[in-house]
Amino acid sequence: MIEFTIWDILRNLLLAARWTVVLSLVSFLGGGIVGALLLFLRIGGNRLSTAFTKYYVEFFQGTPLLMQLFLAFFGLGLFGINVPAWLAAGIALILWTAAFLTEIWRGSVESVVRGQWEASASLGMGYVQQMRYVILPQALTVAIPPTVGFSVQVVKGTALTSIIGFVELSKAGTVVTNATFQPFTVYGLVALIYFALCWPLSKSSQILERKLNVAHRNH
């Protein structure tokens, strides 16, 4: 039997952690873009697009991420399309992230008091100008802390993609355990790596929240 040192284990886990990082970034950035599009459909669009985004958000918030991964992975397979695990994982996580981000951002836009809309309207600004120069700059400071906070959920969400066979940190943990028969050591290290990824994010969310609140303490 081959002996594995801690370093052997850690090195393999860290190599796999790269994919956790990549998948998190892709999900977060892709989800941000899709979420922004949904946001404008939700608040600036007509009744149809508002209803669409509302049900979209309800679907993704109301079903487990795991089911969404299964649907993306197996669902397209039903139509004879062979979806590789990385693609299904990416698509599902992007759509899932978008649903949550668009909801966070909608709340931020709506938190800007009505007087701001009225004052900018009374100065002759049109809808796009109001958004661009008055509402979004204020909504942004409200949105940043919860958005950064949510990125933690995205990182942890990537762990589920191990179930459809995408080899990231959690999946690598299972693989390494099967080779070394040291589950506690391996999963302990996996947890530590997740913590090292997530803790700076949640900490910076807290710091941002304090900072941005101080700058606008009256609002």
Binding site: G115, Q116, E118, A119, S120, A121, S122, L123, G124, M125, Q129, Y133, V134, P137, Q138, T141, H216, N218, H219
Partner: peptide, 29 residues
């Protein structure tokens, strides 16, 4: 609205802009 200005009970200044910025914004935009 270019002919009538309005002043509100709650002032409604744009909190992310300075006093000067508040007065400049609508002129430029």
């Amino acid at each position: 609205r270019l002919k009538v200005g309005m002043i509100f009970q709650q002032f409604n200044l744009f909190p992310h802009l300075t006093a000067g910025g508040n007065v400049i914004l609508s002129q430029t935009v």
